[in-house]
Nucleic acid binder design. Structure first.
Length: 111
DNA sequence: GTGATGACAACCC
DNA sequence: AGGGTTGCCATCA
């Protein structure tokens, strides 16, 4: 049986504007520790047009798309549009990493 | 079953 | 900072 991407998509939808999460962090929050790469596959396959897909970056703050590619540029632009200031080609994770608050955690327990 | 692939991550020079 | 290595794991050919 293949894994269910729903939890990942559900949690991604909770990431607030101006904040980002890493693939591994998203996997952890979805109750799938160690499946960071799989999260990447999900974002690539699913229709993310209604989700904040651009708020998912690598653990070191880089955008996991070919540097200079179309998608890379769009993600970069979207992040900046939310007030995120990139340093070089990276997002300063210490400053912008999303830390779910109590309210968010309670929401996660609902589904 | 097996090997290759990738929108990952943690190390180690 | 930049580059290479290793571990990881679902998919797919």
């Amino acid at each position: 049986m293949s894994l269910n991407a729903q939890p990942v998509l559900t949690i991604l939808a909770l990431v607030p504007c101006g904040k980002v999460v890493s693939y591994g962090q998203l996997a952890d929050l979805a109750g799938l520790p160690g499946k960071a790469r799989w999260v990447g596959q999900v974002l690539q396959r699913q229709d993310t047009t209604q989700l904040p897909w651009h708020r998912v970056v690598a653990s070191d703050g880089r955008l996991s798309l070919a540097k200079g590619s179309e998608g890379w540029q769009e993600q970069r632009q979207r992040l900046q549009a939310e007030g995120i200031i990139l340093r070089g080609d990276r997002v300063p994770m210490a400053q912008y990493r999303w830390q779910p608050d109590l309210a968010a955690l309670l929401m996660l327990m609902e589904y």
